[in-house]
Amino acid sequence: MSAPGWTIDELMCAVMARQIDDGDVVLEGIGTFLPAAAYELARATHAPRLTIFSAITGSFRDVALPLRLHGNESAAAAAATRTISYTEMVLWHLPAYLPRRPERWKEYLRPAQVDRFGHTNNVRIHRVGRGPVRLPGAVGIPDTMALHEQVHLYLPRHEPRVFTERVDVLSGVGGDGLGGEITRTRAERLVTDLGLFEFAGGALQVVSLHPGATLEQVRARTPIAVEAPDVPRETEPPTDGELDALRGTVDPLGLRTLEFLTSRERNVAIRALVEADAGAVSSLGAA
């Protein structure tokens, strides 16, 4: 098969950007370059009125900001419409606006573990014959995942170990959410390097497969129930407009690809980027 004019990270970024609507408020996570690129790509292509919340500075911004390593914190601070404390975010904005309909607040979450109900786990994983493995922690996911009308998950690598019948620790409420006081028709979607999926009916439903990915691959890498139409749709590849924006102004350094690497690979890549970046930046005199 001839090589497409795009890479899988570019495709996933475009898919993630397309799920963002103009006027949304989107939340960046901790070191999550792929969603960060998707948000700016959305802004560049169809969502000029996007508000992005940057975790590193704790600030909302309404203007475009290319992804960068050197100077990223200063740049996010300089672009801020407002810098807030997390007290303000957690006790005011999130409770007030995240559940408000129509849905306007979105975030991309990367689960360490997800089960067939769409519940997620970022606390610890039980290994057979060993003690539990600690994960970095669930941060704000336990507070808000139940409240989204649309839950958006992503996995750079569609790996079997992520999918489980029942999560070891339920730190993110998926599926139907709470019910009761907050009624909703929930949608929980997952973007991986194989396709776009939705959690429904206790199974992973195939919405579309990326060009080159097969249902057999999905079933081989998903140890929970997978349901698909006989002929699944193919994900629409990134358009020329999306690629031009992504490569030109949104993420010219390709920082989104760091999320596809293992820890060790990532540190090697960052070292190389820092060395290249320092040379480029010193000539610009930026800080």
Binding site: I30, G31, F33, V133, R134, L135, P136, G137, A138, V139, G140, L258, S263, R266, N267, I270
Partner: peptide
Amino acid sequence: TYAGLEIYGPSLGIR
């Protein structure tokens, strides 16, 4: 809420 060094990796010591 989180033990780690962002893109530089998890906090292996705390873990």
